[in-house]
């Protein structure tokens, strides 16, 4: 059974909303308590993840950002229910987070956008320099932090970042947006061993069977729905996060 909101996505993580802005909330902003009605048993547990890489302010911004990229609704879990922020935090402490894959030698050239990424930032740099800049820009414009804006306001800002029309420095808003969106979708759809896709909720929503990896008996059952629920590469199907 997938993790679903009972309120059509209006308030899924009630406890989190309550904690926001309190001293406790700043420390454990991701201490969620899922409402017991209409959610699976496993999800109805206290979920506490303390970020290792992100500061409390960055963590709040990131949580309220991915909450809009993949919102909770009747279709399936949102990014927060899928523990996407935990996934991103954990990724920042892998070689990937440190930029070990990318060629990051200077100089930078002014080139056609079609030539791809032309910055010297690692993924950690993009977040560490991008999120505080976003925070300042929002404080300046609205007098309150990003996570206290309502959903419509956050969507507008995210839309401006997608187009690059919000000015941020040194990490351009389009780059920050792209990095968060990419990592958000990764965390939503990756195997749960990496900390996101809690209880394979995203896989259940779309009908991806995960690591089943044997369809010899199904390849020519033309047009029929595959009947088995997904499995993770981790032990017992769920690892990490709890």
């Amino acid at each position: 059974m997938s993790v679903r909101s009972r309120n059509g996505g209006a308030v899924v993580c009630g406890r989190r909303a309550m904690l926001q802005g309190t001293a406790l909330g700043l420390v454990v902003a991701a201490l969620f308590h899922f409402p017991s009605e209409g959610v699976s048993e496993a999800a109805d547990r206290e979920y506490a993840y303390r970020p290792v890489f992100f500061s409390d302010d960055e963590w709040q911004t990131l949580n309220s950002f991915v909450d809009r990229l993949i919102p909770a609704d009747v279709e399936g879990p949102g990014a927060l229910e899928a523990h996407v922020p935990e996934f991103i935090d954990r990724q920042m402490n892998t070689p990937y987070g440190h930029g070990s894959e990318w060629y990051l030698r200077p100089p930078l050239m002014k080139t056609s956008a079609a030539l791809g990424y032309q910055f010297l930032f690692t993924p950690r740099d993009i977040y560490k320099q991008g999120l505080p800049a976003l925070h300042s820009a929002i404080m300046q414009r609205y007098g309150k932090p990003f996570h206290q804006l309502d959903a419509g306001e956050r969507d507008r800002i995210i839309g401006q970042m997608e187009k690059g029309s919000l000015t941020l420095s040194p990490v351009p808003s389009k780059l920050l947006f792209g990095q968060i969106l990419k990592n958000c979708k990764e965390g939503y759809f990756a195997d749960p061993i990496h900390g996101g896709n809690y209880e394979m909720g995203a896989w259940k929503m779309i009908g991806f069977p995960g690591a089943r990896a044997d369809f010899t008996d199904w390849v020519d059952r033309y047009g029929a729905r595959y009947p088995l629920s997904p499995v993770s590469v981790g032990v017992h199907g769920v690892q990490g996060g709890v």
Binding site: T94, S100, E101, W102, Y103, T111, Y117
Partner: peptide, 30 residues
């Protein structure tokens, strides 16, 4: 996604340009 089996650009990569009159830039991310 994380390209476990591929040659990472950090180790070695190429530069690319569209035409002789352009300056080439590195292929920084696979």
């Amino acid at each position: 996604t994380r390209h476990a089996l591929f040659l990472q650009p950090s180790q070695s990569t190429v530069t690319v340009r569209h035409r002789d009159s352009d300056v080439a830039a590195p292929y920084r991310q696979l």
